[in-house]
Design a binder for these strands. Structure first.
Lengths: 213, 213
DNA sequence: ACGCTCCTGTAACTATTGTTACCATATCCG
DNA sequence: CGGATATGGTAACAATAGTTACAGGAGCGT
């Protein structure tokens, strides 16, 4: 179990901190679809992602939903940071995109380490910064891009975090994550298939050419 | 000049920190339209807003623009925090919405205070959290709302930060900040006028009923 | 007053996205 | 096997937003 933390965070934290994390962290596995954090909930332990990918979603009042960004190995969600530090409710939902592991850290340790370890402080700030930029990126997507581009981006990102050119999602699921409707997604996917960028099968989509040519 | 800082930040920082801020800060006035921070630029001093309002904009590659949120007295922009701490380029543009004052703090002091003052640490985290939530709010706006609602929100927010029910902006300016086009904004404003929510004059719009009834 | 620029109104059209409806087939389960 | 459910294809239509074009009036400087 120490190996896991060392592998994922070895390049980020100083040795003494790694040891401390290993001693206090509880390694928890999660499965695809698990809701790790939900909107309106308080967070009592902070998760550090060891393996797998987590998607961060925003929900609207009237059942609208939107994928904001993915989190991968070595990352954490700044929302959990603020929630832990400030005792606030979560504004986002975190859902497992695939199977993986998290190291759960008691909130008390977080603040302790803020004063004790420089690498921890740097990590916390880096996390905030990354999440901020990912939100900006999400804004760029929905504000400046059309649905077909957003769809391609989504397929590309999903392919990346799942390490596969084959995406096992239904049109309905994709529509939900992009806050669109199934018919629209089917239409656009069909167009992408005609352009030779993807191949479609039941329950899966294969990316033929990556979005970034 | 000490009075200004005490007035704006008296409830936030401990006395010793307030004194230190007063001694090192350079008070700088700004005028409506001033570009305080621009995309791609490095930031060498951190601004604390004393009076006035600043709008934070995001820009697209092909000349699209979008207002993300406003910053008011007692706030700072988390982008400047990360830029200062991490020596990174700004991803956003900060433009003065009206006239006001900022206290400019040398970057070195920021890090010094992080270890020295608990209220400073709390403030920095609170700022990050506020900006994060404001970005989420911006996402809600563009992802889940139609242009007419966004327009009403915009008018309401603008009215608030300018302390006036009269908004001195042209349709073109509003269109730019909402990343729309002038014709669309004119059309929607006309509809809002028919609904009795606003009154229009050349170069100004009066909010008759606040958006939040 | 004259010409110029800026601001706004409006029409007509296009593009994009969302909605509703219906169908075909695949898959799962009893 | 037979029926229920999930998934995807497609058409027709509606709603929203963006584009182009043009006109009228306000304000400004000469």
């Amino acid at each position: 179990m120490e190996d896991l933390i060392h592998e994922a965070y070895g390049g980020i934290f100083e040795p003494a901190l790694l040891d401390e994390i290993s001693s206090v962290a509880k390694i928890v596995p999660f499965k695809e679809g698990d809701v790790l954090i939900d909107i309106g909930k308080y967070i009592k332990t902070m998760p550090l992602l060891i393996s797998g990918a987590i998607k961060i979603m925003r929900e609207d009042l009237d059942t609208g939903e939107l994928l904001l960004y993915f989190i991968e190995k070595g990352d954490t969600c700044s929302m959990t940071l603020t929630c832990c530090m400030g005792d606030k409710k979560s504004e986002i939902r975190a859902v497992a995109e695939n199977n993986g592991l998290v190291a759960m850290i008691p909130v008390g340790k977080m603040e302790e380490w803020m004063g004790k370890y420089k690498s921890w402080r740097a990590y916390v700030f880096e996390s905030y910064n990354n999440r901020f930029n990912e939100l900006l990126n999400a804004i760029d997507n929905i504000a400046f891009m059309h649905m077909d581009e957003r769809l391609l981006n989504y397929l590309s990102e999903t392919s990346k975090v799942n390490n596969s050119t084959i995406i096992n999602k239904t049109h309905q699921e994709i529509a939900n994550e992009l806050n669109s409707s199934r018919v629209v997604i089917s239409r656009l996917l069909k167009a992408l298939e005609h352009e030779g960028k993807i191949k479609m099968n039941r329950n899966s989509i294969e990316i033929v050419r990556q979005a970034k040519d």
